[in-house]
Amino acid sequence: MGLLSYVAKRAAFAVVTILIIMTMNFVIFRMMPGNPVAMIADMVRLRPEQVARLYELFGLDKPLWDQYVQYMVQSLRGFYGYSYYSQRPIAEDIMVRLPNTLLLVGTATVLSIVIGMVIGILAAARRGSLVDVTAISFGFLGNSVPVFWLGLILLLVFGVDLKWFPIRGTTSVPAPTDPLALVLDIMWHMTLPTFALVIILFGGYALIMRAAMIDVLTEDYIQLARAKGLDERTVLYKHALRNAMLPMVTVIALAFGFLLSGALLTETVFSWYGLGRYIWDAILKQDYPALQGIFFIISVMVVAANLIADLVYGFLDPRIRQE
């Protein structure tokens, strides 16, 4: 009962949030300076009637209110319009890139969360030790390195000089046809971008984990767990972690919420064919519908991730479940 109304309340809140985001999404892109038709006109020097046709094609000739209604209705139906540039449905553009982004950013996120958490736990368990100081310094360092720069360094060292890893792309050119070889090829190509992302990301998780663990480790129930004769691993990973996870849950959920936004710069440096690069291109080309579409999906993901975080919170922390 309590749980049900808790879920319902959260869900309703999520829906309202999404509607507000959609509206803002629309307004922001109309307020931005620039005009996609003019960008095309600039390239090929269109005649006025061709310009008019482009306006019509993109629906830009209608009043703003009509555009808004059309946008809302279409978005809710999962149709985000046509890209000004590729002229393909945006949903299609997104779907093509989605698996690549999920693969790269998903792997990197999971890896950096796991690595970050382990480092955070170890650092907290040996607070003040050499392990702690080293791990946290590296975490800070990685967190503050600009990813574009890091990516280029990795490219130049491992791609150009050592030639261990490829410089671009998701697969070789041309891609191998044997499925096993293709899997290995993709893994080979994602090594450097994953590595770059993990370096950038793990520090944040490590710091949050460490802080949460240090908090929890001073709790009485941890001493009791030790008194009970539990081994240190059980104390750390069962008793302390479960409690320290509470603040981590939100962080992790948000990380997965932003999964779709990909890693804008990382995907760009490594020419990874994902949504981050799509956003980057769309920004450069002022492809409003594409940006609108992807921002909408990201917003939904983030809101959904928040909702899931709330629910997981309820699962992890029985006190919340009760309320």
């Binding site: 009485d220 129930y221 009791l224 767990a225 008194a227 009970k228 004769g229 479960r242 409690n243 029985p318």
Partner: peptide, 25 residues
Amino acid sequence: IRREVRWKRISMVPQAAMNALNPVF
């Protein structure tokens, strides 16, 4: 100590037992 003394031979009701129970189990 962990295996043979703690809780097996000597156990405790800790100070502030209110907080000594792990809230998530």
